[in-house]
Design a protein around this nucleic acid. Sequence first.
DNA 1: ATGTCATCTTAGAGATGA
Length: 250
Amino acid sequence: MRLATWNVNSIGARLPRLLPWLEQTAPDVLALQETKCADSAFPYADLAALGYEAAHAGDGRWNGVAVLSRVGLEDVSLELEGHPEPRIASAQCGPIHVTSVYVPNGRAIGDPHYHYKLAWFSSLRERLNSFDPTQPLVVMGDLNVALRDSDVWDISAFADSTHVTPAERGAVQALLDWGLVDVEARPGKGDIPFTYWDYRAGMMHKNLGMRIDYVLTTPVVRVSDAYVDREARKGKGASDHAPVVVDVEV
DNA sequence: ATGTCATCTTAGAGATGA
């Protein structure tokens, strides 16, 4: 099976890039983040034409997540207890239970959104208690955390910044401690497999990026290949995130 | 690194968030 995750930064704006990418890459399951789309405007028909069912949580301008699948879509859940924003969507997709997550950005250390981010992570970890780490399970999406110093272009630029604090890293580590494995994409042409580059200041051109999009799997999901599709980040009309593509066997 | 992008309000540029 081929799994992928992609923060598309508006599915409406990205549809001319997303649909050809789906045809070319042909994932069996795709987790989307930042659809920025009311459910009534979600392009179900365009996706169905390519063979995908979709479970979408979205309320308009901000956030919004989805799970697309062409191998079945059962037991859909769009809720994280205590957190009404549409930041989680999960479903059983064939043999694997898949969850798409868009973790709050946090904005600045000490900001109310920073505490919200940590609380959201805590709820996500609690939610795992209703699952079995010996079963095939994937949690993927935009975690808005760089686990290691090497996951950002220059750690010295992140003094007093979010995404790299011990508390945020600890929140991701808690997911790993439950039994999830952080799938490491193979490097491209000698580059670090960043997944996000700011639109501003030529960051993509200079490869000043961050690895903040993750595919986390239980160990029974055997990974045969994983890569970041940097081509999808290039050119006109790109998202500021690149997709992460992972081939697995269950 | 702060050089962009997407969306909403409301009719054209500013606010917001990332």
